[in-house]
């Protein structure tokens, strides 16, 4: 059976333009475009990209409802057997758009989706339930591997009539989906065999990996708050008016260092900014801490605050930001930090 496929790509891979074209609304083209050409050629008799949807990353992320409605209309009309999205590599907004399309196709229209991106792309973490996502490198330089890997997965999908095997055997990233199956050996036998491997220091595979832990052990409470220098750090995107450092509204690649007297607006694209813009103290409570400082509850409020946007920002980036910020704060004699999020 040859699959009829619709391919979703962004403005850049759709050969319309770079950041300056990120605002374009969905455009529909016949046949494959950009990376779709390679995929289509690789598929041979297994399937064909019949339509390509090209949409600007900003448009999708900032007008999600409209974008989805327009894409839904196309999918309903074409009724494809499969939707492809990406590869998005480590482009956060593109990955989020691919994920959004996957959610729409898989959840609302019951159309299976194959995508590809870098494991740290927030689109994977957010939308992994909805698509079979191939792992790619973190930049478009990985296109040469990504395309054959996608083709391979699509072919396997056709061959197995949609019943793809486990992530490791098929080459997609785990979807966080638990599926029942009958095994040859009963559970107790598997447990004893696992025990033997564990005590002998051999490699074994747990059948239920515990959920990811990224817990930070709480430190000891502050004993003498009245003599403690406190700083404020936020992922709520509070920046001076005009966002001088251009901190991105999502998938931030940087953080800003500002004076607490310079709070102006939020750069955050993931919540309604009206109330934060009206009064940034709602996100970064400088006013209350100033009060506490004058009441003597805290020793001192650090005059510098640090701010980034948590919206879809990769954990790895956040860790880098935090390490740098922590070092600077320690050097400035700060003993405690209040983190605010949104």
């Amino acid at each position: 059976m040859a699959l009829r496929i619709v391919h979703y790509i962004n403005q850049f891979f759709g050969q319309i333009g770079g950041e300056e074209k990120a605002h374009i609304s969905p455009q529909i083209e016949d046949g494959p475009i950009g990376p779709g050409n390679g995929i289509n050629a690789g598929l041979g008799d297994s399937g064909e990209i019949v339509k390509t949807i090209i949409c600007g990353d900003d448009y999708f992320n900032e007008n999600a409802e409209d974008a989805k409605a327009e894409i839904k209309e196309v999918l309903e009309e074409v009724e494809p057997d499969l939707v492809l999205a990406g590869p998005a590599f480590n482009a956060g907004r593109y990955g989020m758009a691919c994920g959004g399309v996957a959610e729409l196709a898989c959840d609302e229209l019951d159309i299976p989706v194959i995508s590809a991106m870098y494991p740290e792309n927030p689109g994977y973490e957010m939308y992994r339930n909805y698509a079979y996502m191939i792992e790619t490198s973190n930049s478009a330089a990985g296109m040469r591997e990504a395309i054959p890997n996608m083709v391979k997965l699509i072919k396997s999908y056709v061959k197995k009539d949609g019943k793809l095997g486990r992530p490791q055997e098929e080459g997609y990233m785990p979807r966080g989906l638990r599926k029942n199956m009958f095994t040859e050996k009963r559970g107790s036998t598997r447990a004893v065999e696992m025990l033997i491997k564990k005590i002998n220091g051999e490699v074994f595979e747990t059948e239920y990996p515990m959920p990811n832990f990224d817990r930070v052990a709480p430190v000891d409470p502050i004993e003498d708050l009245a003599n403690t220098k406190v700083a404020l750090v936020t992922s709520g995107g509070i920046v001076p008016d005009g966002n001088p450092d251009r901190v991105e509204s999502s998938s931030a690649s940087k953080y800003g260092e500002y004076k607490i007297t310079e709070m102006g607006e939020t750069a955050h694209g993931g919540y309604d900014p009206v109330y934060a813009n009206q009064d940034p103290n709602r996100v970064l409570p400088v006013d209350v801490l100033k009060d506490l400082e004058s009441e003597g509850v805290i020793g001192e409020l650090h005059e510098i605050y640090y701010s980034t946007v948590g919206n879809g920002t990769a954990v790895a980036s956040s860790k880098v930001f935090a390490q740098e910020i922590a070092e600077t704060l320690i050097n400035d004699g700060v003993q405690a930090v209040i983190l605010t999020s949104t």
Binding site: R166, P167, E184, K185, R186, G187, S188
Partner: peptide
Amino acid sequence: IQAIIGATNELGFGNLTAREY
């Protein structure tokens, strides 16, 4: 299947299991 006696017996009496997909 939680209504079926012994379907997911936790002593590993049966052969049913689950894996991540």
